[in-house]
Structures are given as structure tokens and as C-alpha cells.
Write a protein that binds this DNA or RNA. Structure first.
Lengths: 365, 365
DNA sequence: TTTGGCACTCCGCCCTTGACAGTGCCAAAC
DNA sequence: GTTTGGCACTGTCAAGGGCGGAGTGCCAAA
């Protein structure tokens, strides 16, 4: 690691810790470097020229730019997994007979607590799951609940009122008919298929109306709502948001809007790609947001995505290491390996710090 | 209405509009009163002595105190329902074959949009509902989803992994057994009942373990999660929260914590009480929060509570009138009256402005 | 009882000021 | 030719002073 690199590294890490622009003297005081502040200034100058650092104003300390963060993440960060996390995770996993939801939830809580970031779980895309059955549960003469179950165990329920003049039996037979025709259909195609069936089922249509709507709504939700957010409150304590109410408002607006958030998240993790993926800055209008994501294979289902969400100035080092570790461990756990040996957790490809050609050393003055 | 009262009324209303302490001259400028500012000052002084007004500092305008708000709400507010709301609501209700969830959701959106407040829907207490059935949906040889359905159409689903050495058949027979014994049991008693059954079912215990946990978690959620929040973003735009980051953080913390919020809400609306209920100030540490709630009878179910949540300085007038109107209309809608005649909406007892004995007129100087 | 007038108070705003933490650059030293 | 100390310069931030404004309380006159 060249001196230029290690200075960049220290700047990034110091900024992550303090959230303050870092100057040459500060750096010298905090870490004993065997050179003077003037030298550091020169190096900083060069780094800024190459786009790794930025200044907030003419005579302020430097702040890592997006390029600087990316370089740091790709080349300079150390891998480190706190044993506290390992222990906490093993405690969670060793509990008997847990539901999948619980395991994920608790793992996310651990991640959020250790990193001070919010964690988002994005369920597998439901479009490819197949409709297993529609069930009707009559509640009263005029109301009923419809239950839609997919082959992956995802359930959506809708309560509706019967339209006037329609008996429960009408609805029942309509549901039976729908079951016969739709079972096994991928969720993504259900609506189309119903549309195509329409001519054939005019007889049933009286009863089907409500069911149809319920189905339609349910499937709209299938897409949007399979998402959970944990540790939101950590975001509130981040200094960048505490001072700037506007940023906070924007961020919270995003977070409260599942479909928007899903969109922002999902395009960050390209189809099928494994390992850790990071995205820094400008997610739909928000410039001070970054995100680290990993995929986890749920038992018997498609993969879910776990992301850590926070300010651009997040501890990437920690976030990536922990997320990678947890994702790996969950993978093996869900694959049925109950054992807690760590040896099994080595095969995930965290894009590990690697030397690159274009290091920020070359000066072309 | 005495002059003292109308001054209090104007002060409250002006403060609700501007969020600024209101002084004597300001009041005179905004509304043409046929007296001088000095007179108003005297009145204000009296109102402050009686505890209806407060000053933020020695020489500032007055702000309504909690007592002032309560008096305003009980005696001074005018009933007024914007026809926009009526129209919007009728549009929603006239759509065919809606699910109950959708109707409630859309009604809340209307309320939130018109009042700029957040709305909270608290489902009926699930403890009294009865377990209708437990269903098992195998997903793979080692995973399954358990479905719990109550007689009111509420559904909870949990996915879990089978413990090693337990076959799907074991679990199936365990579920069958649980179904036989637990069907019809009120949710609140299920856990106790299972505890009591334990000795009798040691044979099944191997398979029951996971189900037991799933049940347990599901029922914990039954209590906590039957709650929806809409229009959170309106809170962000309130001036009192925009300037004070601490308050906002606290409030969001509360909102993000379902069980805490539920607690804060539920004790505000005493058992069975109908009509509109309001709560001003100090909800669990938060002093700048107020809430207006109403109960709505869901079809075939117990009553749900709809609340509007916002700063103490909210437009009570509007909030109460609209909420009362919407609640009444939903009641009749869910009771099966699809008609949109307004005549049906008169029987809800909004605690209407009433003259009271202890009006803030008596001066004892 | 109401009113106009007056002195007083406190907040918020703007401006200045000084301390401070930076930078850039240069000439000397290694 | 890199490194270093020194120096001038720049922008931020917090504290302080001065002012105008919005408000109050009180008093004496109508």
C-alpha cells in the first residue's frame, strides 16, 4: 500500500468516525505518521486533483468523494468481523424450532444494532411463484375472507363484502372454479389469465366480481409488500440527518413508501448476482444515501436480499464484513447445516480488497 | 357565547393556523373586533389567570394551554364537514366489490390528506376471536408454512424449518391433533391451553415443537400488529416538528414501534365507548402530540378504532368533524347500506359544543 | 368598563469580531 | 527531487452588541 493510499484510507476512516471534514494536522495528531502536515497536504492535494477527495469549501478539510469511497471499499478496507456478532448470531440460530421470519428478523436486528444502520429485507420476487390455492372463509352471511397461498408459502388475505344479491354459494362455486383453472399459474400471469378467461366465465361472473378484485389487490401487494425494514431508528441518530431536516424528511418519505424503496433497492442488485453489492449516492433523488446488499437463499424459496441502508458516510468496512458474514451464515443455516463451525462460512465471495492497476499514486503534474 | 369565549376561540383558531403565539394587536388586525387591543389584553390576562392560555415567555403572545384546547373542543368549535370529503368518500364507497381493507385504507388516506394528520387504524382486539383452524402447507421436505385463521377472518402465517429427525408426517399429525383440541378456543387462551395440554401430548411433542413456537409467535403478533398507519409524511411537514429534530425523532420512534403506539392509543379509547374521543398531550413522554379517535364497526367483526394523530396544535374542529363524519358513514356502509343519502349519518353522538357551567368568564380579581 | 398612551421586556436579526482550522505556496534543508 | 517549516490567506463558527418589533402591564382619562 503506497503512502498515498494509506493517507486516503486514514482520511476515509477518520471521516467515517467523526463525520467531520479532516485536515492535515488533524490526521497527523490522530495517527502518528512519520511525515509532516505539509507533506500530507501535498498528498491530499494530489488526491483531490485525481477526484478521490473533495472540499466542502475553499479552506476546509477534505471529505471522501464517491470515487474515494469506491476506491476505499475496493482496495483499502480490512476485513473484520466482530466476535460479538458471531456470538449473537449463533445464539439466535441455536434456538430450536424458529420460524424463518424470526431468524431473518433477529439477524437483521443484530446487523442494525452493530452497524447503526437500517436493514431492509426484500423478499424473493413473487411473480414466479405459483398460485397454490384460493380459500374462502365465510365470516358472516355477507362477508368473507379470501386466502391466496403460493407454492412458496406466501399468503395474502383479503376480507370483502358480498355484493347485494349474491349468495355465499355463488362465491363458493366461483372460487372453486378459479381454483381449478388457476392453480399452478405463476402469480405474474394470474391477472392476464383471468382476463383471458373472462368470456368463458360469464355465468360465474356475478360471484366472481368481488373475488376478482380481491385477487387483483392481493397480487398488487404481492409485488410491493414483501419487504421488511428494521432499525429505522438508527438512521435518526446519524449526525448528517439530525442537523438537516430536509434530508431526513426525504429519506423518511422514501422509507415509508414501500414500492418506491423497493424500486430503489431492486435495481441495485442485478438479477441473480451473488455476493456483496454496494451502491453509493443518488438513489432516486437522495444523494446522501448508500447501501450494501447481499442475497440469502431461503429454504425452499428463491433468494431474498438483505440490505443495510445508511448515510454515504457509513462504515463500509464493518457493514460489508458483517453483512457478508451473516448472509453466508444464514445460507448455510437454511441449507440445513445446523452446526456452528465457522469453517463453513468461507465460500462467499466478498469482493475482497484487491490491488488494482489504477491506484491513486500516479501524479501527472 | 361571551366575548371572553369568542376571544379564546379566535386565539385557538389563529394559533392553529399560524403556529405562532398570538398577541392582542395581531388578533385585532386579523379579525375586526369592536374593541381595542387593550381590552383584548385585559381579557387575555384573565384567560391566562384562569389557565386557558399560556405565554412562552414574559412578553410574548399567548398560546392555548391544554385546558384551553379542551375548552375549545368541548364548547367553542363549529361543526363543519367539507363537501370535498363527502364526495371523495362516496367515490370510494361506490366502487364495486371492494375489500374491507381497501375501503378503510382509502378512507384513511382521505382523512389524512384533508387534515394533514397521520391516521392510525387499530384493529379489533384479537384476544376474543376464536381460532378457526391451523393449516399446514409443506413447501419442501424440510420446510413448511403454518397458517392460523381466526373466526373473524384474520390470518397469520409463519414459515418454519423442520427440526432434524422429524418428518413432515409427524408435523401433520401434530397439527391435526392441535386442530382438534384448539379449534374454537379464543386466541387469548390458546397459549394457556397448550401449556395445560403439554402432559397429554408428549407423544406428539417431537412434531409439535416447531408448531408450538410458530403458534406462539403468531399470537404475539396477533396482539401487536393489527395496526396500520397512513399519511405519516404529513407529520413531517408540520412546523413544530420541522424545526425541532428532537421532537420528531421521539415521535417517529413511537410511530415505528407498533406495540408502544398501540399502548398509547388503546388506553385513550376506553372499552366500548362510542363516539369521538380526544386526547391532548403527554402520551408516554411526548408532550406535543394530540389524537382524535373514533370507533367503526367492521362487518362481522368487532369494532376497529380510527385515530388521527398530530401535533397538539391541530385543527381539532376539522379533524373531529371529518373523523366523525367518516366513521359514521363507514358504519352505515359496513352495515350494508350502500346508499349515499346523508340522512343516515346523523345519529353518531359527536360530543357537540355544549354550554357548560364553568365557562371562562367569571373573574375573581 | 373601555380606551389610548407609555414604559418596559424579551426575542430575533444583523453585523462585527476574534479564534480557529484549514489550505497553498515558497524557499530552504536533506 | 522530496520533504519540511513558515507564512499569508480564506472560510467557518460562536460570542457579543445594537437595534427594531411585537408584545405586555399598568395607569389615568373618557
Amino acid at each position: 500500500m503506497t503512502r498515498t493510499e494509506s493517507i486516503l484510507k486514514l482520511i476515509v476512516e477518520h471521516f467515517i468516525k467523526t463525520a467531520q471534514p479532516v485536515g492535515s494536522q488533524t490526521l497527523l495528531d490522530a495517527y502518528h505518521l512519520d511525515c509532516s502536515s505539509a507533506t500530507i497536504r501535498n498528498e491530499m492535494n494530489a488526491l483531490e486533483k485525481d477526484g478521490y477527495l473533495e472540499k466542502t469549501h475553499t479552506s476546509s478539510g477534505r471529505v471522501p468523494s464517491k470515487k474515494g469511497y469506491v476506491y476505499y471499499v475496493e482496495h483499502l478496507r480490512d476485513e473484520r468481523v466482530d466476535s460479538k456478532v458471531k456470538n449473537a448470531l449463533e445464539t439466535v440460530l441455536s434456538r430450536q424450532a424458529q420460524t424463518v421470519e424470526e431468524v431473518i428478523r433477529q439477524s437483521c436486528e443484530i446487523l442494525s444494532n452493530m452497524t447503526n444502520l437500517a436493514s431492509v429485507v426484500l423478499g424473493p420476487k413473487v411473480e414466479q411463484e405459483k398460485l397454490l390455492s384460493i380459500q374462502l372463509i365465510p365470516l358472516s352471511p355477507t362477508t368473507a375472507t379470501a386466502l391466496f397461498v403460493t407454492d412458496q408459502g406466501y399468503v395474502e388475505n383479503k376480507t370483502f363484502m358480498l355484493q347485494q344479491g349474491i349468495s355465499m354459494d355463488d362465491v363458493k362455486s366461483a372460487v372453486e372454479m378459479l381454483n381449478k383453472r388457476l392453480t399452478g399459474t405463476p402469480i405474474g400471469e394470474v391477472v392476464d389469465k383471468m382476463e383471458a378467461m373472462k368470456p368463458a366465465l360469464t355465468d360465474y361472473m356475478v360471484g366472481v366480481g368481488a373475488i376478482y378484485n380481491a385477487l387483483f389487490q392481493a397480487f398488487a401487494q404481492f409485488a410491493a409488500e414483501r419487504m421488511n425494514l428494521y432499525g429505522k431508528s438508527h438512521l435518526l441518530s446519524q449526525p448528517e440527518y439530525q442537523s438537516d431536516a430536509g434530508k431526513l424528511t426525504k429519506l423518511l418519505g422514501l422509507i415509508d413508501n414501500p414500492s418506491e424503496l423497493r424500486e430503489a433497492l431492486s435495481d441495485s442488485h442485478e438479477a441473480g448476482e451473488d455476493g456483496i453489492h454496494i451502491k453509493i449516492g443518488d438513489a432516486s433523488g437522495l444523494d446522501d444515501v448508500a447501501m450494501v446488499s447481499a442475497k440469502v437463499a431461503l429454504p425452499g424459496m428463491e433468494k431474498a436480499t438483505i440490505s443495510l441502508l445508511g448515510p454515504k458516510r457509513m462504515d463500509y468496512d464493518k457493514a460489508m464484513s458483517l453483512l457478508s458474514y451473516v448472509a453466508e451464515r444464514l445460507d448455510s443455516y437454511f441449507a440445513g447445516e445446523k452446526g456452528s463451525e465457522e469453517a463453513k462460512c468461507q465460500n462467499r465471495k466478498t469482493p475482497s480488497p484487491k490491488k488494482s492497476q489504477k491506484s491513486p499514486g500516479g501524479k501527472k503534474r
